[in-house]
C-alpha cells in the first residue's frame, strides 16, 4: 500500500518539475526550426540566383543573352554571353533521352502492370530500379568510354564528344522513373475496369491501350514531364560525354554544351568572383532552375487536376 502511494507521489513530484513543462514547450519550436531549414534552402537558392543574375544583367543585355547565338565567356578581349547554344544542347540531349525513356519506360510499365505475373513483377521491378540507383558519374563514364565508341562504329562521323551518346544513356537512366511512375498510375486503375473490357472479349493489349492507359493518362504524362525535368537537370553524363563546345546546331553527332555542363566548366575553371563569366553562372543556373521548377509544378498540377474518380 505504501509503495503505491510512493509511485503516486513520485509522479506528482515529476509533474510539478518545471523542466519537463519547459521541454514540452520548447520541442515544437526546435522542430519548427528544423522544418524551416528547408524553406531557408529555397530562399537561399532563389535569393542567390536572383541577386547574382541581376548583377549579370547589369553587364550583359537581355537581348544578347536570349537572342544572339555566340557564347565565349572566357574570351579575354571580347567575351560573348548567349544562352541559346546551351539551351540547344540541353533541349537536344533531353529530346534524345526522352526518345529512349518514354517508349521503353511506358512499355515496361505496361508489361509489368498488365502482363507480368505477380511473381515476375516482384523480381523485375526492383531490378529495373537498380538502374535508378547507379550514380550518374558511372553513366557518364560508360557513355564516354563505351557507348560513344560503339556508336562510332555505326556512325563514323560521330565526334568523340557528342550529344547522341549521352542522350541515349541519360534516357536509359530515366527509364525506371518513367516506368515506375507510369506503373503506379496504371495500378491505380481499378481491376473492375479491366474485367469489364476483358468480359467483352478484348485482348490484354486492347485492355491496356484502350482502357488502362487512357484512364491513367494524367499520371503517365506526369511521369514523362518529370523525366524531362530530370534530363534537363542531369549534369555529369553530358559534362563528360557531350563536351564543352558552345555549339548552336541541330547536329547531334557534334559536341554541344548543356546548361548544366556550362556551370561545371565555369566553376571548375578560373573565373574569379566578380567577373561577368562568374555572374553568368547564375543566369544560366536561374534559367535551369526555372525550367525544372515549372516542369515539376506542371507534373504535380496534372496529377492533381486530372485525377480520375472511379
Amino acid at each position: 500500500m505504501s509503495e503505491r502511494l510512493n509511485v503516486k507521489e513520485a509522479i506528482q513530484a515529476k509533474r510539478k518539475n518545471n523542466k519537463s513543462v519547459f521541454v514540452e514547450k520548447m520541442v515544437p519550436v526546435i522542430l519548427f526550426l528544423a522544418a524551416f531549414i528547408s524553406i531557408i534552402t529555397t530562399i537561399g537558392i532563389v535569393g542567390t540566383l536572383t541577386y547574382e543574375t541581376i548583377l549579370f544583367f547589369r553587364e550583359v543585355s537581355f537581348t544578347e543573352f536570349f537572342t544572339t547565338t555566340d557564347l565565349s565567356p572566357l574570351n579575354p578581349t571580347d567575351p560573348k554571353f548567349s544562352i541559346l547554344p546551351l539551351l540547344m544542347g540541353t533541349v537536344m540531349s533531353s529530346l534524345i533521352a526522352m526518345f529512349v525513356a518514354i517508349p521503353i519506360g511506358l512499355t515496361t510499365a505496361v508489361y509489368l502492370s498488365e502482363y507480368a505475373s505477380s511473381n515476375s513483377r516482384k523480381v523485375l521491378k526492383p531490378m529495373i530500379e537498380v538502374l535508378a540507383g547507379i550514380p550518374t558519374i558511372v553513366y557518364g563514364f560508360f557513355a564516354f568510354t563505351f557507348v560513344t565508341p560503339v556508336l562510332q562504329e555505326v556512325i563514323p562521323i560521330l565526334d568523340r564528344t557528342n550529344v547522341l551518346s549521352p542522350g541515349i544513356v541519360m534516357g536509359i537512366m530515366i527509364i525506371p522513373m518513367v516506368a515506375s511512375l507510369s506503373e503506379d498510375a496504371m495500378n491505380s486503375v481499378p481491376n473492375s475496369m479491366r474485367e469489364g473490357a476483358l468480359a467483352l472479349g478484348a485482348t490484354p493489349l486492347e485492355v491496356a491501350f484502350r482502357v488502362v492507359i487512357p484512364a491513367a493518362i494524367s499520371g503517365i504524362i506526369a511521369s514523362f514531364v518529370l523525366g524531362i525535368s530530370r534530363a534537363i537537370g542531369e549534369t555529369m553524363i553530358v559534362t563528360i560525354a557531350s563536351g564543352s563546345t558552345k555549339n548552336f546546331t541541330f547536329d547531334v553527332t557534334q559536341s554541344m554544351q548543356t546548361m548544366t555542363a556550362y556551370i561545371v566548366e565555369v566553376t571548375s575553371g578560373d573565373a574569379g568572383a566578380g567577373t561577368t563569366a562568374y555572374f553568368s553562372l547564375y543566369a544560366v543556373g536561374m534559367t535551369l532552375f526555372v525550367f525544372t521548377l515549372l516542369m515539376n509544378m506542371f507534373a504535380t498540377y496534372i496529377t492533381r487536376r486530372f485525377r480520375e474518380v472511379y
Binding site: 481499378p190 473492375s192 475496369m193 474485367e195 469489364g196 473490357a197 468480359a199 467483352l200 472479349g201 478484348a202 486492347e206 484502350r210 482502357v211 487512357p214 484512364a215 480520375e308 472511379y310
Partner: peptide, 26 residues
C-alpha cells in the same frame, strides 16, 4: 458471353464510347 458485374464498372469515357467499346474492339 457477356457479363454484368456486381458494381457498375463503366470505363472513364463517354456514354457513347462505353457502349461502342466492344464493337470497336471487334
Amino acid at each position: 458471353v457477356g457479363m454484368v458485374f456486381q458494381k457498375p464498372n463503366p470505363f472513364p469515357k463517354t456514354i457513347f464510347e462505353n457502349v461502342a467499346y466492344g464493337p470497336k474492339v471487334h
